[in-house]
């Protein structure tokens, strides 16, 4: 087993008197997809925000490539190579795919007056999107005209292109249809094969099982343990997420379809 890129040890986060995280341990290795599962309010969002530098942990340690690390801002984390694709995707519908792709990090050319090298930007965008399995009609197509899955893929391709070592995906499949979901899952697989560590946040066990190598379940701000693929089945994960008994009762009344 290779060394983890990022290792978070016993992370605690309190907001005033609310304990959002109460000792979470989590790590990601290069080329794996580690799923972080949990129901609403389990602390998933707080945890990934801690990992991406938005929040500072109240207690606990973060090791990045083996060294203790403390991120002061999302910028710090981004520069270290931790890219987060939040649910809003940070995409602007009225702008072209290229303009979105390079937003804030435009390639420049020219001497005294630095110009936005739009030709190179277009070319890179087309190439990177093709590598993710999407043939754009044109790089100046507006992002608003893309499907949800394609937008998700643009966001992922952008993070990968800008040198992500760890890619955190916040519920990338939550608003997508069946086809789109499988496309995004395929994209995750491609990213993983490039040696990037993927953190896949979801509350959908089936989506997680489809691509995950390891699974960590969060419940009430605590990790309930990490399982390796093959050691656990969907039903067990589901039970852990929901905290056991109530779910069993519900499933009974719904005929076991959840």
């Amino acid at each position: 087993m290779s060394e983890p890129i990022i290792h978070m040890e016993n992370i605690k986060k309190h907001f005033g008197n609310v304990i959002a995280l109460n000792g979470v341990t989590f790590d990601v290795r290069p080329g794996e997809c580690h799923c972080l599962l949990g129901d609403n309010g389990a602390g998933k969002s707080t945890f990934i925000k801690t990992m991406s530098g938005v929040h500072k942990p109240t207690a606990g340690e973060i090791f990045f490539e083996g060294r203790p690390m403390s991120f002061d801002s999302p910028r710090d984390a981004m520069e270290a190579g931790i890219a987060t694709v939040f649910q809003d995707l940070a995409m602007i519908p009225l702008m072209s795919v290229t303009r979105n792709f390079f937003m804030g990090r435009e390639p420049k050319k020219g001497g005294i007056i630095k110009r936005f090298d739009i030709d190179r930007a277009n070319q890179i965008t087309m190439e990177e999107m093709r590598r993710m399995g999407i043939n754009l009609r044109a790089p100046d197509q507006a992002v608003g005209a893309l499907s949800g899955g394609e937008r998700q893929t643009v966001a992922i391709a952008r993070a990968v292109y800008f040198g992500a070592k760890v890619l955190i995906l916040d519920e990338p499949t939550s608003a997508l249809g069946v086809r789109q979901t499988s496309n995004v899952l395929a994209t995750i697989d491609r990213v993983r094969n490039q040696g990037i560590g993927v953190v896949f946040i979801s509350h959908n066990v089936r989506h997680a099982m489809a691509v995950g190598d390891r699974f960590t379940v969060l419940n009430r701000g605590q990790t309930l343990g990490t399982a390796v693929k093959g050691e656990i089945d969907a039903a067990q994960l589901q039970d852990m997420m929901a905290g056991g008994q109530e779910m069993a009762q519900l499933e009974g009344s719904l005929g076991g379809t959840v």
Partner: peptide
């Protein structure tokens, strides 16, 4: 159309939150 600043102006007007998160 041809400078990074132009891209920042479009991005800022399109969604200032997304733009700020992307480093604009």
């Amino acid at each position: 159309l041809r400078t990074p600043a132009g891209n920042w102006i479009f991005a800022t007007g399109g969604d200032d939150n997304a733009a700020a998160n992307s480093g604009v």
